[in-house]
Amino acid sequence: MSDGEGARFITEQKLDTSHKAILYLEDLNVSFDGFKAINNLSLYIDKGELRCIIGPNGAGKTTMMDIITGKTKPDSGQAWFGQTIDLLKMTEPEIANAGIGRKFQKPTVFESHTVAENLELAMHGNKSVWYSLKAKLTGTQQFLIDDTLRTIGLTEHYYRPAGALSHGQKQWLEIGMLLVQEPHLMLVDEPVAGMTHQEMDRTAELLVSLAGERSVVVVEHDMEFVRSIADKVTVLHQGSVLAEGSMDEVQNDPRVIEVYLGE
């Protein structure tokens, strides 16, 4: 545990958000076989902010997340986490350990592990090979797992294989995995797909409560859901930012209307 805390302390020291912003994306370009998925994209996320990103299919939302988390390397441009951490020079696990967590569009949990084991695997701490060989759950970690299971409402599924959960429950489990990672920045891709209205309300509540302490970026298609949580909305279109502002401003923007409703 002490090792894990130590490693975490170092990354926390490195993350410098003294200029308010936690994420800087500048002039990013990505093309796949000539198709420009991301086109001169610049975007800034502030510390503690809850930002919603909307846009039609193919607007580059998922590609943008891929760049931030290290899965895709851009052709040009810059991506910084705080003032000092250059995301483009890092691998996926390094970025994850620096404090960026991601929830995928299609819920991806470790299907043959139990619900509790999924949380154990995702939990922040030392993730080196030799450390894992001897790692035991500490009291604090056990408490965090129990606490998180309560938050995501899966306490009675503690020993259940994650593969046996319903679609909505998997979504929740993945959110739980994000929580125990304790990231500074959470990227959440379509969190409410496949959820009932009641579940959606709980998700909205959870995401709003997380912002402030952490920064949360939500990509979502469901406009009603976005309206219920967003203070600031960014509209992506053809790989770049089309409009940015409050939900009302954005919805009344003639360019946005044109993109969404067609010419």
Partner: peptide
């Protein structure tokens, strides 16, 4: 084995 890239995204050097 089950989800390699997911494992990377939770911070393990696969």
């Amino acid at each position: 084995r089950d989800a390699e890239s997911r494992t990377r995204f939770v911070g393990y050097k696969v």
